[in-house]
């Protein structure tokens, strides 16, 4: 009885029979998986295989042709929700605003009660608070992006190449932040072409394979 009850429990994120094509190309066919709090999912595969497209679908930016993506049991393309924090290829900061101003802007957009200074401290940017975003290093800029996800209080982090163009130290800091998030009951989907590492208790790797002629 207990078994059935837990099976019926809806997942945080459930992807069912997802097929996605971009232009004329079928990228992903019939993909199903689900994510629970504390999960980490690495998405790997060579360039142009559809990692970014898959991440956009999960976040709610790109409606898939077939299949459904459900957040706590409801389709995200019918009932949009704000529990997902997406971080694409761009950090998305305004170069002429300071780190604090950039984050405060998102505070107003997310109507978040968390003080921006507190979050900047958490990602280790207190010293750079009044620096314009254009003078931040690549690593600091990336951390500011993660600060936006913290500001949003998103429980699912969808990160597209979060470690791209970062040195080893920068990569480690990002990984620690993600690990913290997962340990606090969040979950993360990370696209990467570097070797996946174990983050949290339940880490899986999804490898996308291209078409036979690719």
């Amino acid at each position: 009885m207990i078994q059935t009850a837990s099976q019926q429990k809806t997942s945080m994120l459930a992807v069912t029979n997802l097929s996605v094509s971009r232009g004329e190309r079928l990228l992903i066919e019939d993909l199903s998986f689900s994510l629970e709090p504390g999960d980490t999912l690495w998405v790997t595969g060579s360039n142009g295989i559809g990692k970014t497209t898959l991440l956009k679908c999960i976040s709610g930016l790109l409606r898939p042709e077939t299949g459904s993506i459900c957040w706590h049991g409801t389709d995200i393309y019918i009932y949009p929700h704000s529990g997902t924090g997406y971080q694409g290829h761009h950090d998305g900061h305004k170069p002429n605003l300071t780190a604090l101003e950039n984050l405060q802007f998102w505070q107003s957009i997310y109507s978040s009660p968390v003080p921006a200074q507190e979050i900047l401290e958490k990602v280790g940017l207190s010293a750079q608070m009044d620096l314009r975003a254009k003078s931040l290093s690549a690593g600091q800029s990336r951390r500011l992006s993660l600060a936006r996800l913290l500001m949003k209080r998103a429980s699912l982090w969808v990160l597209d190449e979060p470690a791209a163009a970062l040195d080893i130290k920068g990569q480690k800091i990002i990984q620690t932040l993600v690990a913290d998030h997962v340990a606090n009951g969040g979950c993360a989907v990370i696209a990467s072409h570097t070797a996946p590492e174990k983050i949290g208790e339940h880490t899986r790797v999804l490898t996308l394979n291209g078409a036979a002629d690719a």
């Binding site: 992903i28 066919e29 019939d30 998986f33 690495w42 899986r204 790797v205 036979a212």
Partner: peptide, 10 residues
């Protein structure tokens, strides 16, 4: 068509 993706646990 795309080949099916594989899932493994770390």
């Amino acid at each position: 068509a795309a080949a099916s993706p594989t899932m493994e646990t770390l």
